[in-house]
Design a protein around this nucleic acid. Structure first.
Length: 423
RNA sequence: GUGGGUGUAGCUCAGUUGGUUAGAGCGUCGGACUGUGGCUCCGAAGGUCGCGGGUUCGAGCCCCGUUACCCACCCCA
């Protein structure tokens, strides 16, 4: 038996699990203020949900999916991202029929078959939010602001983050631009890498993303979509920027920001940090996907959203020196002078827990000294000592671990006294 | 898929030109006039030195293979 988690997965031990819960709670509180409601979609979907939505030519679909055939012969894929599923669910349940809108958020594990490295896992967690049915540029800004506020609320200093934005155009202006870039790549084929040449056929815009210095040079001369936008897209982009300005959210326009999913239209954005993530730098990103619902056979429905990565966010938090503190494991520790008193202790511990007090005790027959050490380690504010002397008088000793004050308390009053001490 | 690095107690790591009972710190457990914590001191438990071959009188140290993890490329959260 190989007692090891599979490659690219990790156990989240209490310290990390606590951070996870903190990140989820923070999202729940914040997103609720923006009108978002939770949604849980399956962790696996029919493969087609992703191939259609994300795009056959993307890295995610072409080489990173966990796809398998189930016992019924269906092709199933572990979700590599959340948007496709949420949009599928929205369509399936008619959440935005007849001009309705929906604001939904989700959190959970995603799966991508890649070589793991710092900030990249095969199973990784994301929180995402999707705003469906709204085409106005104001909602673009709102989504971006909520994402930035989330990171800030967790404790990543604003100056540690960089918000990049760009526009991908729409079906009116992008095809022409796409052809133009494909042509540009062909013209400069000798100066570009093999991969970029291949991109001319599959997804020309991704050539902007190439990290090869030679390609970067060449692509810096390429025509920009910004200059080829149709009027509607140009107006939308201008309005988004203007809203961000109004909200004092600073951003960097990055024409090379393309992102790895085919469904994006118009606004795309990414939040990057410099420290803690190894060679990665994005902690969150997203964009608008006004045609996605139609790709699933649904009515034309605009939408946009973002996703952010837990692992990377935690790395960024650590790099920023932010500690996520846990609650004490126990508020009260019940110690017994000798093991024979177990019965009385057991009843008392249960009574305290029923009274809402986090209570811990020893089940290993340890020395009183050791029990005190344990109480200290668990962060207990008080220790209740159960000994023969006390019990003979129907009492216990209560020790305030901060002030070291001790007093004998009748058994019947101990719960109330402890609650009083704990405030 | 490709490349580099690492793999010694629960954790972080030392282990000299290969040499005889493999060490430290932290943590854990026990103790310091025996019913009491956080400091200090003492002591104890705990290791197939990733695994398999090879070289050697002898290998944690050298060689080969293998595996795991880490990091990087690609791309992304």
């Amino acid at each position: 038996m190989n007692a090891r988690a599979p490659k690219g997965t990790a156990d989240m031990l209490p310290d990390v699990a606590r951070a996870w819960e903190h990140m989820q709670r923070t999202a729940q509180r914040l997103f609720a203020r923006y009108g978002y409601e939770p949604v849980y979609t399956p962790i696996f979907e029919h493969t087609e949900v992703f191939t259609r939505g994300i795009g056959e030519a993307t890295d995610i679909v072409s080489k990173e999916m966990y796809t398998f055939e189930d016992k019924g012969g269906r092709s199933i894929t572990l979700r590599p991202e959340g948007t496709a599923s949420v949009v599928r669910a929205t369509l399936e349940h008619n959440l935005v029929a007849n001009g309705q809108s929906a604001k939904l958020y989700y959190a959970g594990p995603m799966f991508r078959y890649e070589r793991p490295q710092k900030g990249r896992m095969r199973q990784f967690w994301q929180i995402g939010a999707e705003a469906l049915g709204m085409a106005e540029p104001g909602i673009d800004a709102e989504v971006i602001v909520m994402l930035m506020r989330y990171f800030e609320e967790l404790g990543i200093p604003r100056q540690n983050m960089r918000l990049l934005i760009n526009t991908m155009g729409d079906e009116n202006c992008r095809p022409a631009y796409r052809d133009k870039i494909a042509g540009f790549i062909r013209e400069h084929s000798t100066a570009l890498c093999e991969e970029c040449n291949r991109r001319a056929e599959t997804n020309p815009l991704r050539a902007f993303d190439c990290k090869n210095p030679g390609c970067k040079d060449v692509m810096s001369e390429a025509p920009l979509l910004r200059d080829e936008l149709c009027d509607d897209c140009a107006a939308h982009y201008a309005a988004v920027k203007s809203s961000l300005d109004d909200l004092a959210i600073s951003y960097i326009e990055d024409p090379s920001l393309v992102r790895g999913l085919d469904y994006y239209t118009r606004t795309v954005f990414e939040v990057q940090v410099d420290a803690g993530l190894g060679s990665q730098n994005a902690i969150g990103g997203g964009g608008r996907y006004d045609r996605l619902m139609e790709q699933y056979g649904g009515p034309a429905t605009p939408g946009l959203g973002f996703a952010l990565g837990f692992e990377r966010t935690l790395l960024a938090l650590e790099a920023a020196g932010v500690a996520i503190l846990g609650h004490p494991v126990a508020e009260v520790y019940v110690a017994r002078v000798d093991a024979a008193l177990g019965g009385a202790v057991f009843a008392l511990v249960q009574e305290l827990r029923d009274a809402g007090i986090a209570t811990e005790t020893d089940y290993q027959g340890r020395s009183l000294k050791s029990q005190f050490k344990q109480a200290d380690r668990l962060g207990a504010r008080a220790v209740v000592i159960v000994g023969p002397d006390e019990l003979a008088a129907g009492e216990v000793t209560m020790r305030d671990m901060t002030t070291k004050d001790e007093s004998r308390i009748p058994l019947g009053e101990i719960a109330a006294r402890l609650k009083q001490l704990l405030g």
